[in-house]
């Protein structure tokens, strides 16, 4: 592996976003293909961070910093991927429900999903039910992810799923939910297809949903 890729993987692992962006740029300048940079440095970097999280060696600040470095490196490499004809594991549409501004968990989930090869469209925060439905109809994602972080706002997930049903979209998309107040029981109750306990779990569940 080139020095730039080794350094890039380490920068993502250590959450050094400036170095991650610079070394991704350097790797491209050295003539490496975007897809190779992603597969041999950026994704292994975020996966190594996920492994350390699992082992209680990394805590949330470490994972967040890694996710930021991952995003910084991906932003550099992303434009080359389409030209190289990269394929995706699946397409995810994700957002935080209306009335809820929390974005932390969603950001990490997005980084982990992208690391697993998903194409992710982020609707942002405070997303009205109608937007979830309109964008699902328009973009036809494989998975719709709805995050909520307050026990008052989580109730709108029921409306999203009911809306999908009403518009005849429910059978075309898998629905995942996540966020602090949610649980498997809640996911079952509202009729979601999966609950993501954390970003790693969400990514694993998204892969499972794609196999169904």
């Amino acid at each position: 592996m080139s020095d730039a890729l080794t350094k890039l993987k380490q920068a993502v692992l250590e959450g050094d976003d400036a170095t991650a962006a610079a070394t991704a740029q350097q790797a491209l300048a050295e003539g490496l293909k975007g897809l190779d940079i992603v597969n041999s440095a950026i994704v292994p970097g975020i996966q190594a961070a996920g492994q350390l999280w699992k082992e209680n060696q990394y805590f949330l600040p470490d994972v967040v910093m890694s996710a930021e470095a991952f995003s910084a490196a991906m932003a550099v490499v992303q434009p080359t991927l389409t030209a190289e004809g990269a394929t995706h594991t699946g397409r995810v549409l994700i957002g935080t429900v209306a009335g809820d501004m929390h974005t932390l968990g969603k950001s990490i989930v997005i980084a982990m999903l992208q690391g697993a090869g998903f194409e992710v469209t982020d609707l942002g925060v405070d997303v009205p039910v109608r937007t979830f439905l309109d964008k699902t109809a328009e973009l036809k994602p494989d998975i719709l992810g709805a995050g909520c972080y307050m026990s008052t706002t989580m109730l709108s997930i029921k409306d999203i799923i009911a809306g999908l049903q009403e518009r005849g979209l429910r059978n075309q998309v898998k629905v995942m939910v996540g966020g602090v107040p949610t649980s498997q029981e809640f996911a079952d109750e509202v009729g979601a297809d999966a609950w993501g306990k954390d970003a790693l779990d969400a990514t694993a569940k998204a892969r499972q949903l794609m196999r169904r």
Partner: peptide, 8 residues
């Protein structure tokens, strides 16, 4: 719901 800061 309770007021919540718009961290965006």
């Amino acid at each position: 719901a309770m007021p919540t800061p718009d961290v965006s």
